[in-house]
Amino acid sequence: MNNNSKAARIAIYAGLILWLLINLFPVYWMFTFSLKNNAEIFGQNVVGLPQHWLWSNYTSALKTGKMGIYFLNSVIVAFSTILITLVAAVMATYALSRLIWKRRKAMNKFFMLGLTIPIHASIVPVYVTLSRMHMLNTYWALIIPYAAFSLSMAILVCTGFMNEIPFDLDEAACIDGCSVWGIFLRIIVPLMRPAVATVGIYTFLQCWNELMFANIFISKTALKTLPVGVQALSGQYTTEWGPIGAALVLATFPTLLVYVFLSKRIQESFIAGAIKG
């Protein structure tokens, strides 16, 4: 019996470690080949650590491959989207869960439809509208749609956090002579900080990794975001793998770095987004 359960435990850990390695290996391989030359990647040293650490791959990716520009564009788009999403979502949540009116439940359900609507719904009309307004190839062409598609999830998360703020606070502030805006800005908004983090992380990842809109709405190199930029760069370096590896690492390390420090919070934001919806 004892032997059996010991064997079972070993089997369980072996399985868990095997899956761990399957998860880590492609990422490890990406990091190593980003520092190798073709000779090493293609035969001499396929899976080992680089023999000569070829940092020039990163310079090529940043300069010739324009990863620096793409990176900056992604940062601009992601942070603008987060800002707009948060302002719109916190305001709407205040109206939906604090202010008193008849159809607020129905309105909340209406916003939650956004959790199911695929981005395909918007692609043609938004493209046509943007092109008529000469707004293709601008940051706004991405920021506005991204913010709109992040909204439902943001309202969902904000509602959870706002419901935990005691209503007594609103009443006390009201008695002290605060207006609606005073209560909102001085009481509610400062207490929404944890929601800001959760929504921010989730929205950041959506923007950082989005391909379809970015691919269609932006064709100017100077405005491309990382996913489209990486695609362009890999077309440029078809035979040299090192710089492509470097580009992949550059596009990935910010997310992984944040993940190392905030893994629990990031996981919670994904759970909140899926299960409450």
Partner: peptide
């Protein structure tokens, strides 16, 4: 892997 861009 969920956090890494699908393009990457």
């Amino acid at each position: 892997p969920v956090l890494i861009s699908t393009v990457v």
